[in-house]
């Protein structure tokens, strides 16, 4: 019969090293397909997102705009008085929330990848790792939309240009990477027990106040100690300092967290790949 070499796939129960080796080889083999598929899924989901609305993609920007207007209003009426150094407070908060939203969005997006694709996962065999790319792409789109609102903001409150500003996008990406890493590590468990994802959603609300988002890093006290234990602090403080100017004293921490996140994302994708057959088996098609 046909003499062409057919790809061989072995389906066996496997654990530990075997499972990881299998995950790695299949991801390398499918990487081109998985990138194409991720792009197609990203297009599908974004196109579908606002199809049922008149304003369409404007909705990407509106929430961020509304959010920042609140802070402009609040600081204009002196309801909140937080010192933010030389930078005007609204700008300070805007940049802080931008970074926090990037982190928060990435955590939520990567936590929900199994839930959102449940039907497809249970019925079609495709390189599932592309879902991670899709989730990252979606939160990147959201972050970019928020960043778009920065333009009128910086016209209102001009900030002098300095070269470090160019590093800000790196900071944003690092923050998103950290969020993705965190979410991915939790997915194998949270896909089965919704307790975990509920707890994380709850924790993120506290996290907002345990991270110097709407206020600068405290000079001393318990708050400072807690924030130093919070890895997101390093990302937010350093990235904001790059954009608005200031000392980047937490740069070593920033680098550590980023490297750690990067390796956690790699490990997390492998974890997901190894865990998915078990997850699919337990969840069925829902």
């Amino acid at each position: 019969m046909s003499e062409k070499e057919l790809p061989i796939r072995l389906i066996t129960p496997h654990d530990g090293v075997d499972a990881f080796r299998y995950a790695l080889t299949s991801m390398i083999r499918d990487q081109r397909f998985s990138r194409e598929l991720a792009w197609r899924m990203f297009l599908r989901d974004t196109q579908a997102m606002f199809r049922q609305s008149f304003l369409g993609y404007v909705w990407l920007v509106l929430p961020a705009l509304a959010n920042s207007l609140v802070w402009v209003f609040l600081s204009g009426t002196d309801v909140v008085s937080i010192s933010s150094g030389q930078t005007p407070y609204p700008v300070f908060v805007f940049v802080g929330t931008l970074l926090w939203t990037a982190f928060n969005g990435s955590v939520v997006a990567s936590l929900s990848i199994v839930d959102e694709a449940r039907g497809t996962l249970a019925k079609v065999n495709f390189p599932q790792e592309c879902l991670v790319l899709v989730a990252f792409g979606k939160s990147l789109l959201n972050t970019l939309a928020t960043a778009l609102c920065a333009i009128p903001f910086f016209l209102m409150y001009p900030v002098a240009f300095h070269w470090q500003m160019l590093l800000f996008p790196v900071g944003v990406l690092a923050t998103m990477l950290a969020g993705t890493a965190f979410g991915l590590m939790m997915v194998p468990i949270s896909a089965m027990f919704s307790d975990l994802s509920r707890a994380i959603h709850l924790g993120l609300r506290f996290g907002f106040f345990l991270t110097p988002v709407i206020f600068p890093l405290p000079e001393s006290g318990l708050g400072r100690t807690i924030m130093f234990w919070n890895p997101v602090t390093y990302l937010v403080v350093t990235s904001r300092a790059w954009l608005l100017g200031g000392e980047t004293v937490l740069l070593p921490g920033f680098l550590c967290v980023t490297l750690l996140s990067l390796s956690m994302v790699c490990v997390g994708v492998m974890f997901l790949k190894v865990a998915l057959p078990h997850i699919i088996e337990r969840l069925g098609s829902g």
Partner: peptide, 23 residues
Amino acid sequence: LNGLIRPDSGRVTMRGRVGALIE
């Protein structure tokens, strides 16, 4: 056979591209 879930024991060898007309 479609590779969605793994058996608890035994092995399956699939040679070639798999197409599934399932859902």
